[in-house]
């Protein structure tokens, strides 16, 4: 058992536990980067973190503020060009886990990071695709980490930037995309995994203390819940200590907390 923790910490710790020692992970900035580095600093010291700036095997002491921070280069096994990272390493099929954040997802774990509203007259213009469309269609599997709410879990995406399970069933398989697509969505409320047949996301884990009705209310479609809904293990004191130490040394270095919020 451990002391109190925040939903954000619960989410980050849960995501970090998904990574195994030696996994090769293509890491998005923000929450994916925090979770991956926590894994590296706790149970998975040999995890290989690849950032799209071309740093392979980065081992930063603090969380990077940008995807191309100097410390990523200094601690990497090698630094390659941006064309090379996307061609040989990502599209070449050398990445086990593509770890992404998102502004919106739908029930088939398709991702929007482009616009809220219409494309031509957006209500909110988001940053755009970055590396995500090819990460989503090239990695062996994809994990998505984001906070769960009606703003983020929507019945229909305003724009599909990166493909998840598309329209469900075998639609992804037929599309020519490589890999299994999203196998996990990790949120501040629990974990969702695609149904093996329909590919619709199913809540398989709920975080301790979270009410199932609240999870349903934070989902923009009728949420399917696993018949064997498990409760996630609470963060250990050690995990929290390492995460908080990482966040505070990050804040000291950058003058900010990098959580991807």
């Amino acid at each position: 058992m451990s002391e109190n923790y925040t939903p954000n910490e619960m989410m980050t710790v849960t995501a970090s536990r998904c990574l195994q020692n030696g996994d090769v992970c293509f890491v998005g900035i923000g929450l994916p980067s925090a979770a991956s580095n926590l894994a590296r600093l706790t149970h998975a010291p040999e995890v290989v973190l690849i950032y799209e700036s071309g740093t392979i095997g980065a081992k930063p002491h603090v969380l990077p503020l940008s995807i191309g921070d100097g410390e990523l280069a200094e601690t990497a096994d090698t630094v390659v060009s941006v064309p090379e990272i996307f061609r040989y390493w990502l599209q070449g099929g050398r990445v086990k886990v593509g770890f992404l954040g998102a502004a919106q997802i739908d029930k088939f774990a398709n991702i929007n990071t482009t616009v809220i509203g219409s494309y031509d007259r957006p209500k909110v213009r988001l940053p755009g695709a970055g590396g995500a469309p090819e990460i989503a269609s090239s990695a062996e599997e994809v994990w998505i980490i984001l906070k769960q709410s009606l703003r983020t879990f929507v019945s229909k995406l305003d724009f599909t930037t990166s493909a998840g399970h598309m329209t469900g069933g075998d639609s992804r398989e037929k599309s020519g995309a490589r890999g299994k697509g999203p196998t996990r969505v990790i949120t501040d409320m629990g974990i969702l995994e695609p149904d093996p047949e329909t590919k619709e996301l199913v809540l398989t884990h709920i975080h301790p203390g979270v009410n199932l009705e609240d999870v349903k209310k934070a989902t923009g479609w009728e949420l399917k819940v696993s018949r064997v809904l498990k409760v996630t293990d609470v963060p250990t004191a050690y995990e929290l200590e390492v995460l908080r130490q990482l966040n505070s040394s990050t804040a000291l270095k950058h003058g900010t907390v990098v959580t991807g919020d």
Binding site: E52, S81, V82, P83, F86, R87, L90, Q91, N110, T114, Y119, A129, G130, G131, A132, P133, E134, A136, S137, S138, F159, T160, T161, S162, A163, G164, M166, R172, S175, G176, A177, R178
Partner: peptide, 29 residues
Amino acid sequence: GHADMASRYQAGASGLPFAVLRGYIGSDL
């Protein structure tokens, strides 16, 4: 997307007219 932009620069540097990649599958872009 990034992979595409990087490939487009490579094509430009190589004197080729276009870039090719396994990209945008399922994307609205």
